[in-house]
Design a binder for these strands. Structure first.
Lengths: 194, 194
DNA sequence: TTGACAGCTTACCATGCGGTAAGTACATTG
DNA sequence: CAATGTACTTACCGCATGGTAAGCTGTCAA
């Protein structure tokens, strides 16, 4: 299993952007992780903004692929939605870099000239919204979006806060909380759709 | 109503930290907003990290004061919790700088040497957790934290995403969604405690 | 064998960063 | 009137940043 230099750059960049944000991460530091110079990075990606865009694109493709798989496996829309949200939660708990990266993009994309990630997020959200609507057809699009966002927020916020929460409440306490979080989240999802 | 230079610095800093994050915001830019030089700022706050800490402290004091007022006004814990969460949501929708600032702190505080904001957030969270426990005494501390965090996340995530959502779905659609968000949130809060 | 290209390197540059040092202008106080 | 302190300024520093330019090396096709 050989990973191309390009892919290694993308992986290293994802981690550093997640840790420090777009401004805080430097391309020289990313390159140093592979033992290369920043000019090697620039050779592959042109500039920092484009690198960031590619990282985001790769991430959103992974998200979309997951949802597509779930949509295939489960016929019932209510199950689909529940599984999509829970899968996304589990994924973000496992790969917290991706969770933090999306959160940062939510915060930053207005600031940066090129709004690289907007449109990928859009597709992802639209899919969830329309799934909610097919579960509960009395919900307007606007209300379905509110529901989706609350559930997404409940999960994403927690995933992103893990290091801070470990700091505040201690690892032991948080291990227990993590243990019951998913069950509680499932409850919340069902309540929101009832 | 004269605001001291110091207070003006804090206000300007809050805004810029919220916009660009700790790394992205420069003290020179903050000072320029008041027509002063960065050395004036350094005169008042010593260094960037301390300025950031003071901004966070001021913010957390506002949060604590709001909660204290609610705790006084409402005798019933269930009402207290609902009002605290909704008040926090409304506050964050009105002052989105503060919402983004807290979110950024959640993401960044592990990275920065001095973890300025940890302990303020701690008090705030503990208060909510213990309120949940007095509403539903069958919840363990760990489970109460899970519940609190889900509800907090549902609200905070939405507040923080406003500019991005406006971009994706358009201002009209989002105005409608904002209109039904709070009612939906209230439903979610009650469901989580039942 | 030559030419082109991919994948790097070193060298360099202007800009902006946080921070120090030293000084100025002005008000308050002994 | 002198001393002290506050609220600023200009001047400067060393360093890291994103990006450009030019060149080196190996591969591969004509």
């Amino acid at each position: 299993m050989t990973t191309s230099t390009r892919e290694q750059f993308l992986a290293a960049a994802e981690q550093l952007f997640a840790d420090k944000g777009f401004y805080g991460a430097s391309i020289a530091t990313i390159a140093r992780k592979l033992g290369l110079t920043k000019q090697a990075l620039l050779h592959h990606f042109g500039n920092k903004e484009k690198l960031y865009g590619e990282v985001l694109r790769a991430l959103s493709e992974r998200l979309a692929a997951n949802n597509a798989a779930i949509r295939q496996r489960y016929p019932d829309p209510a199950e689909q939605l529940e599984e999509m949200l829970l899968a996304q939660f589990r994924g973000q708990m496992k790969n917290q870099d991706s969770a933090r990266l999306i959160m940062r993009e939510l915060l930053d994309n207005e600031q940066r000239a090129d709004r690289a990630g907007n449109w990928y997020l859009k597709d992802y959200l639209e899919e969830l919204v329309s799934t909610v609507q097919s579960v509960n057809s009395s919900y307007s699009r606007a209300r379905a979006l509110a529901v989706v966002y609350q559930l997404l927020g409940a999960a994403h916020y927690f995933a992103v806060s893990q290091p801070t929460l470990d700091n505040i409440f201690g690892k032991r306490q948080m291990a227990i909380t993590r243990g019951c979080f998913e069950e509680q989240l499932r409850r919340l999802i069902r309540a929101a759709l009832a």
